[in-house]
Design a protein around this nucleic acid. Sequence first.
DNA 1: ATTAATTTTTAGGCTAGACTAAAAATTAAT
DNA 2: ATTAATTTTTAGTCTAGCCTAAAAATTAAT
Lengths: 219, 219
Amino acid sequence: MATSLAEENYLKIIYRLCEGTKEGISTNSIAELINNKAASVTDMLQKMAEKGWVTYQKYQGVRLTEIGQNIALSIIRKHRLWEVFLVEKLGYNWDEVHEIAEQLEHIESETLINKLDSFLDFPKIDPHGDPIPSQEGEIPELEYLHLSEVKLNETCTLMGVAKDSAVFLQLLTKLNLSLGARLEVVEINTFDRSISLKIAEEKPIFISHEVAKNILVKI
Amino acid sequence: MATSLAEENYLKIIYRLCEGTKEGISTNSIAELINNKAASVTDMLQKMAEKGWVTYQKYQGVRLTEIGQNIALSIIRKHRLWEVFLVEKLGYNWDEVHEIAEQLEHIESETLINKLDSFLDFPKIDPHGDPIPSQEGEIPELEYLHLSEVKLNETCTLMGVAKDSAVFLQLLTKLNLSLGARLEVVEINTFDRSISLKIAEEKPIFISHEVAKNILVKI
DNA sequence: ATTAATTTTTAGGCTAGACTAAAAATTAAT
DNA sequence: ATTAATTTTTAGTCTAGCCTAAAAATTAAT
Ligand SMILES: [Mn+2]
Ligand SMILES: [Mn+2]
Ligand SMILES: [Mn+2]
Ligand SMILES: [Mn+2]
């Protein structure tokens, strides 16, 4: 069945909210992320339940069905492949691509996205370290730690970000923090949980707990 | 002012119809190309006149304003640059790209299209030989002949097509007729105006007047 | 110059997807 | 266990962009 732009955006957001939990997703949480009023969300959820993309019972929240999840994953696949294209081929920075990918992800063509995938040499992650779902909708569950959880004097590799807002990404860039960077936690301040980091043997930088929480690393 | 998808499609079609003539463009001709009913077109024309994109008087047809024309040209620029991308970078054939470009042309980002332009090495024509408008909305008026107008025994170069339907383009491909081909008109049948052509010294092929009319050449 | 045919516009409706305001259900607080 | 606060749903509107049917204007044919 064909999906409208509005429906695709709902599916993507519900997918994101489902990830963290087994519970039903609340109307309000969707409304907030999609920037609509709760009443509008209820309306749409009922239509999407009708189409078999979500399971929905009044007041009990919503979950994606198998079908709904597959649609969501195909949109996420497109979003992330386009982000790779924008950074790798057109020379964008990682903080500039999200909005454009929000548009490109709705372009409908099976062949297009597979040719793009091939043109990009079948990347496994996007510019923010997020995994790219396969054509079949398989997505590797990457088991990363938040930098805020890393112990003193441990060394880790920056694998991704938990938030892709432009200001956050720009801050990381300014701090010289990019995907693949080797990080050593040289100090943890118990007062505010701020952290001192050595990036590849350079002189240490300070980051707040708030920043550390949104950086994903592998030991 | 922001343009909706529907408005952009109207502007593009009106631009095309304006090209051939100085007259006002009829409601019906727009309706036919855009696959809407005339009443819907009237409706939209009135709204677009309101916004200053067309001049419109009841029963007198419509013309693009300077502003309307510039919007149309920017969409055409995007359409054609994306077509180049699809063919040159993703390996599509020239008969497969139009529908996808119809979607991509509506992606809104100044920087995107200029980076794409640069990535493609600033092409001047698209895969069908159509000129690509500059960022400033300048478009070279290419003065081509229809192959049907070429005299017997003259030699010419295939520069473009006057129609980009998939079946037509597929026929040309089958006949080994592609952009840049050197063509010699070796026979013209007065009865049905069909033509015999030598392509780069190969043995001649036959094409109908209908086909010849839609092939653009330079002597 | 009338009449006929065609084109265009108006009038009134419909659907998707948003909204506000009010009602209903759930959850939290006494 | 009530009452209060919060969340969610229903009911009723609105706009964009389409539609059909009927009216009006233009163009073509007698
Ligand atoms: Mn993104
Ligand atoms: Mn991303
Ligand atoms: Mn095209
Ligand atoms: Mn083209």
